[in-house]
C-alpha cells in the first residue's frame, strides 16, 4: 500500500478494484477458452478477493517476486491457478501474453499451479497443504523479525481435511497475527455441495472455536473484503479467518446460473456470449 493509494477516496478505490476484478475475469475467460473446460467457475468466483489482495493489500515487488519481505499469497487449492495466473499477469509478475499458453503442453502455467512458476509460493492441489505451510511461513517470518504477512486461500472442501484443523490449532497456539486464511465457500466440491457431501458448517463458529479472529462476509463484495481486512489488521495476537461466501462463475451470467459444477465443460460457441455478459455486468 503506498501513500498515493491511501489518499484516494475509498469510493474511488472501490471502483478501481472492481474494474481490476473485471480485468482479472477477462483473463480467466481467455485462459479457460484455450482449454475449453476447467475451473472457470472458481477463477471467476475468487477474482474479487485477488483484486483486493494483489492491488491493494499485499506488498510485493513484481520485478523481484522472491523479495524476502514480500507478503505471500499461498494458493492451497492448486486448481484455482487460473485465478492466480490472472492476478500475476495483471500485476506484472508474469508476462501478460503468457496467459495464452495456459494448460498447454510445456507451459509454465499448468492447470494446477506449480511452485516453479514465478509468484506461485507452494505447489498446491493436493488439498490440505496450504494452511500447514502458511503456519510455518508465518512462524518463520515472524521469528526472523520480518514484516511479511501470509494470505492463504483455502476452499470449503479443504475444511474436511484433518491437516487443515491441525494447522488451525497451531496458528492460534502461536498467536500468528501475521496469518490470514480466506476460506472460499463457493458451496461446491467434486461430488456436490458440501452440505450433501460432508457438512462443514457452521464454519465461522468452528474457526472462532479454534481461536481465530473470524469474520464471515460476501466474498464477491469488494467493500466487504476491504472492511474485513481493515478489521483484521487491528487484531494482532490471533490469526485471521475470513470466511467468504462466493458465487461460482461470478460476473458471467451463464456460468452463475449453470448447474453448479466443480469442473465445467464449455461449448466453443459459448465463449463470446460469456465475454459479452462480463462486459455488460454493472460494476
Amino acid at each position: 500500500m503506498n501513500a498515493q493509494s491511501e489518499a484516494i477516496s475509498s469510493a474511488t478505490q472501490e471502483i478501481r478494484l472492481k474494474e481490476t476484478a473485471r480485468a482479472l475475469r477477462r483473463h480467466v475467460l481467455e485462459m479457460a477458452e484455450i482449454v475449453g473446460q476447467g475451473y472457470v467457475g472458481q477463477g471467476l468466483g475468487i477474482s474479487d478477493l485477488l483484486a483486493v489482495l494483489y492491488f491493494r493489500e499485499m506488498r510485493y515487488d513484481p520485478k523481484n517476486p522472491s523479495w524476502q519481505d514480500r507478503d505471500r499469497f499461498i494458493l492451497s487449492t492448486g486448481h484455482y491457478a487460473i485465478g492466480l495466473y490472472a492476478a500475476l499477469a495483471e500485476a506484472g509478475i508474469i508476462p501478460l501474453h503468457e496467459i495464452g499458453t495456459y494448460g498447454t503442453d510445456g507451459s509454465r502455467l499448468e492447470m494446477a499451479a506449480p511452485e516453479t512458476t514465478p509468484g506461485v509460493e507452494i505447489t498446491g492441489g493436493s488439498l490440505g497443504h496450504g494452511l500447514p505451510q502458511s503456519v510455518g511461513m508465518a512462524i518463520g517470518l515472524r521469528y526472523q523479525g520480518r514484516p511479511s504477512r501470509i494470505f492463504n486461500l483455502l476452499s470449503d472442501g479443504e475444511c474436511q481435511e484433518g491437516a487443515t484443523w491441525e494447522a488451525a490449532m497451531a496458528g492460534a497456539h502461536y498467536k500468528l497475527g501475521n496469518l490470514y486464511a480466506f476460506i472460499d465457500c463457493n458451496n461446491q466440491q467434486a461430488d456436490g455441495p458440501p452440505a450433501a457431501i460432508m457438512n462443514i458448517e457452521p464454519l465461522d463458529k468452528k474457526w472462532e472455536a479454534f481461536g481465530w479472529h473470524t469474520q464471515r462476509i460476501d466474498g464477491n463484495d469488494v467493500a466487504a473484503i476491504l472492511g474485513a481486512l481493515a478489521a483484521a489488521r487491528k487484531v494482532e495476537d490471533r490469526p485471521h479467518a475470513i470466511v467468504l461466501d462466493t458465487l461460482m462463475g461470478k460476473g458471467v451470467a451463464t456460468f452463475e446460473q449453470r448447474e453448479k459444477n466443480h469442473f465445467i465443460r464449455v461449448g466453443a460457441e459459448e465463449w463470446s456470449v460469456a465475454r459479452q455478459q462480463l462486459e455488460e455486468r454493472a460494476l
Binding site: I34, V35, G36, Q37, G38, T101, G103, T104, D105, G106, S107, E110, M111
Partner: peptide, 8 residues
C-alpha cells in the same frame, strides 16, 4: 512445447 491443450 507442442501447444496442444492439455486434455487433463
Amino acid at each position: 512445447p507442442r501447444g496442444v491443450a492439455g486434455n487433463i
